[in-house]
Every structure is written in structure tokens, then in C-alpha cells.
Write a protein that binds this DNA or RNA. Sequence first.
DNA 1: GCCTGATTTGGTAGCGCTACCATCATCATC
DNA 2: GATGATGATGGTAGCGCTACCAAATCAGGC
Lengths: 344, 344
Amino acid sequence: MALLKPRSRRGGGRPTIADVARKAGVGAITVSRALREPGRVSEELRRQIEAAIDELGYVPDPNARALASARAEVFGVLVPSLTNNVFAEVVRGIYDSLSDGPFRIQLGNTHYSGLEEERLLQVFGSQRPAALIVAGIDQTPTSRNLLQNAGCPVVQVMETGPDPVDMMVGFSHLDGGRTATEHLIEAGYRRIGFIGARMDPRSQRRLAGYRAAMEKAGLFDPRLVTTTPVLSSVTLGRELFRDALAKMPTLDGVFCNNDDIALGVLFECHRASIEVPKTIGIVGFNDFDMMQVAFPSITSIRTPRYEIGRRAVAMALAAIAGNRPQERVVDLGFELRRRESTAR
Amino acid sequence: MALLKPRSRRGGGRPTIADVARKAGVGAITVSRALREPGRVSEELRRQIEAAIDELGYVPDPNARALASARAEVFGVLVPSLTNNVFAEVVRGIYDSLSDGPFRIQLGNTHYSGLEEERLLQVFGSQRPAALIVAGIDQTPTSRNLLQNAGCPVVQVMETGPDPVDMMVGFSHLDGGRTATEHLIEAGYRRIGFIGARMDPRSQRRLAGYRAAMEKAGLFDPRLVTTTPVLSSVTLGRELFRDALAKMPTLDGVFCNNDDIALGVLFECHRASIEVPKTIGIVGFNDFDMMQVAFPSITSIRTPRYEIGRRAVAMALAAIAGNRPQERVVDLGFELRRRESTAR
DNA sequence: GCCTGATTTGGTAGCGCTACCATCATCATC
DNA sequence: GATGATGATGGTAGCGCTACCAAATCAGGC
């Protein structure tokens, strides 16, 4: 008589929770509990179960878990760019904070497109993630709606604003732009340009900060502003600076939308023998490592990218654990790093 | 009399494949087939099913799918760093190639640690991914074993070598190092240093290429080599260059392990009024955008990072579809970009 | 008309896990 | 000693989907 079930598990024969339960002499559900809520299982059984797990080399199947509990141990992370170092550091912060626990990261690249963001939120939602972390606060109404109905903690990162979907961690780009510009003004520069590429909402707010500072000092002139929607790069920084100079030869300072642009400006100054900081003052944004090494070293606004990632995860984990933080909007601030490029 | 089943689906009430089947008046399995193998379903039913899907806004549950088919639509991607631009571009290539299809990306950061790589492969394996893409070819025996038994296509990227686990896409770092060094020699430099940080296996091979070229020209001297295991940065490039100069004041050229180091060297040359390329020639590695903008522009080895990501996915997808490429090792090469920093 | 094989469709039985309840001790309380 | 209250454990019934097989249909050949 043949065996009824020829042990042909479809799934490749890895040990399951039932195998562990059999070996430990307990019910499957007790194994499940021992894994998820160890406190609710007696110490004796827990030890037996752990021994069985070790012996069999059991690893829980995240897919089965997600299906049964209608909740995947996944953090959905949406950023507008994978190669922009700013977001890479945010992602690194998220990753480092999550690598101890059971949570995986599902990365989405919106390419600075609201439509793509909507599409990704749709896809991510179908997985019932444990939390969503999205860059920016300017979601489309559709995206906002998707976030609101995601049924999980949501953290908007990089910026602060008055109206969080759920939680927020970031800083004020407007204040950052204003601080950078005020610093140039205080240093004695007057014909201060703004140079920016890829004018996403954060860049727009830095520009607004620049404008506020310039207007307050009675120095604003629209011809001082040079922008392009093209993706930022060092090469582009150089080109935009040449455009700006051509348009406004009396330029004596520039606030650059980001450090790439600032570096391009610096190199062009070298090339054209424009003295920095004497003839032109330069301020960057983000304060990448290279800013302090550049010659002359470049003043920049230090932004807490890595810390934003870490804090976003901490808030999301707290919310998952049931104690949503009191402060739903966390401003991590920024810091002006004064260097040679503005030391006139 | 109360309803028997108060329609309290645990899973939040999103439409399921059964809902679609009911609406379209077909069996559930036919809907499943229409989604995965449209060719095997008559055109009429297919149309009905598509209409039902649209109307209900049905999105397949990837977790249920993975559980039932014992195969997740996930590409596991293992890189040693999230912020190193080189890997960010590889990941971008992978992401762009995958964003059309159903596959998700599961990212792992090994932090240049073999042990961490083993741990991640273990975790990734428990999800039965559709494919694995790992950076480097120097896996530990344990990791190699895990890859071999992963039961899915595996692509090792960034390098080429004689013994792929399954497939490989990359280029020869040894040849890259040699080419860079030979270029300096041909340009007339003689006391050519090697400066490298974070001496991972790829850096080691570039160093080996440097050494081969130097020895062949009868120029090698161990005091010309300055390395550190510390993570690479522009700041570090500057410091290492100062060390190298202190050790060997007659240095007249440097091959830098990567572009960050090269940039640090360039800035230090500015700062110390060392003329480039007259007194010192500089060659970088990777050819980031900024190399061509720097003043003077910096000679570098252009590496096909993005293309490596794309090709790795293409090969993996082909293998999944059943037609594993003939060539299991693809060498995408590199290119020396001659610029001002070596134009003596 | 019958058979064969290809094509299209559906039913059943899981995949591995957890939510929900039921059960059974144990112990304090009246 | 009956009555809950509490805590530990287990059974059952799915989660939403697909593998596997069975059945139905149809074309063509004899």
C-alpha cells in the first residue's frame, strides 16, 4: 500500500512552523506566539521551541506571515532620486535603523514625478506595508488620499510643514535659503545671485528664502535668479554660473541651490580667474564632505539627512508599537557652516 | 435570522481574485491565468476579465502570489554601500530596468562585510527571490554556497572573473588600474604614487594593475603606495596625499583609487600651490561628472555603472524566462578619459 | 461514428502562517 | 465549594493565490 502523501511539499522542503511544533511537542500556534510574543509563552516551552528552531534551521516565511496577518513587515520608502546623495543618505539612515528588526525596505523612485509617485503608492499599498516614508510634503491630492488610507503610519521627510498627513521629519528649506542669503549679505556681498537646477518644491522654497532675505535688504532683482528644471550636476552648475555672469556681470555672490552647483561655480571661478571670496562669495546647500576640503573651502548649509532617516524610522516604529509621538512634526534644523568662500 | 457570514474579511475588504471571477462570470483560476499567461485564455474571456479588473480596481496581492507559487517577484540586490555613488548608479540601473515589470527590489547593504553578506543572503533566501544580484566576486565560501543553492538566477556585478556562481557583468579592475598607470607613464610621469582608501577587493585589483604597470616600466617602489582601510572621502584623499608627499617628496603623479580621492588630491594641490599637471599628474577612477568640470579637469577611468545594472537585470530576466545567455561572463569594459590633469 | 490530441476552462487542495475562539488549568474571592 | 478572573495552550478556519489534475470542447483523421 502506497503512502498517502509522498511528502512532496511544493515549497522546496524547507522546515515550516509545523515541523518546529512537532519537534518541540507543542501546537503550531504556540510556536508562532513564541516568535512574536515571547512573553505570552511559558519559559519552558519557549526553550524547547528555540531548540527546535535552531536544530531545524527554521526561518519564518515572510510571505505567509504577510498573507495571514494582512500586514507585511515592509517599510515603503519613496524618494525622488536614487543617485542624489541627499536621498542616498536618508535611505542609509532608514536602512541602518531597520537592519536589526524584521522589517524590509521597499524602495520606490519617483523621478520627481507626482504621477509616478501616485503609481508607486498604489503598488506599495497593495502590499499593506507596516509604514510608509515619503520624501517631500507636496503630494498630489490623489497621493495624499492614498497615504491617508494606507492604514499604516506615514512619515513625510526632508521638510517641515503645517499639515502632515500623519507625521513629518525635516527642516525648513525656506529658512535655510534665508539663512544662507543673510550670511552673504552680512559678509558684505550685495549683487547676490541665486543659481538652482531641478527646481523641485524644496528648491523653490530655498529660492523663496533667498528672495525674502534679498527683499528685506532691498537688494532683490529678478535678473539675479538663474534656474533650470534640468537635473542638477556639477557641470550644470558651471554652465548656469556662466549664464548668470553673462546676464549680470556685476554679480558678487551666489547662493547655490545645492553643493553640486556650488562646486561647478567654484571650478568656473578658478578657470576664469575670478577670486573667491574676494570677487565672488559662494554658499552651497547640504554641506557634503567635499565642501570643507575644496579650495577655497565652501560655506554651506549643513542638513541632517542621515538623522532624518533615523528619526523617521523611530517615529514610525513608535506608532506601530501603539505610542504615536506627541509631536507629529519634528524639525531637525540645519546649520550654517562658514568657510573660506564667504570670508571676505 | 442573521447572515451566516457578515462579510468581515480580515484583509480589509479589498477585491480579490474571486470577486473578479464572479463579476466576469468565470472561474478564479481563469482570472489568474489571464493575468499571468494571457495567451492561454480566449480573447473573449480575457476582455471580460480585464473589464472586471478595471471596474473593481483589483490589484493582485504579491504576498498571496508568493506563497502559492513558492516564488516571490523580488530581485534581491546586495551592495556594500548605499551612499557610494558607484553603487547608487548600479542600483538605479537595476531599478530602471525593473520598473516596468512586476518585480520589486529588496536592497541589502553589506557594509563591505562578508559576515553581513552571509546574514543577508540567508534572510533573502527565505523569501525565494526571483533573482539575486550581488556586488563583487569575492564571496565567502558560505555565501557562495548560499548563492549556489538559492534556486534562482544569480548575477555577480562590478567585476569579471573566471569562476562565476552563475552569471557575471562587470569589467576588469586590474586592467583599469594598469591602463590608468600606463597612461601616466606614457605622459612622462615617473614617480607615480597609488593612493587608495577602503581597500576592498576591487581596489586591491586596481592596485595590482598599478603595480604591474610600474614594475613593467621598472618604476615600482613600495613607498609609492599609500592606502588605508578607512571609508573613502574627499577629505581622506587630501590627507592621504599629504602623507604620500611627506613619505616621498619627489612624487610627480598619482593614480587615485577613486574620484573622491582624486578630488581631494586636486584641492590639496591648489592649497599647496602644486601645479597640475606640470608638477603632479592626477588620474581618478570611475569618472564622475565633476571630473570633467574640475579645474584642471581630471583624467579618469570611465566605468559603466548604470549599464552594469541594466545588463545584470537583462541577463537575470532572460534566465528566468528560460533562455540563459550563452556568455555567462559579460565584460563591459571601461574607458580612459584623458583630460588636463595629465596633459603635460 | 469513434478515437486522438490539442486547446480551453474549472475544481480542489494546498502554500505557511496567524486571527479568533475554545479549552483547561490555576488561583483568588466570596 | 461555587464563581469568576487570569494565563497558558491548542484547534479551526481562513488569508488570496496558484499547482495540479480533471473535464469539457473542438478539429481532424480514419
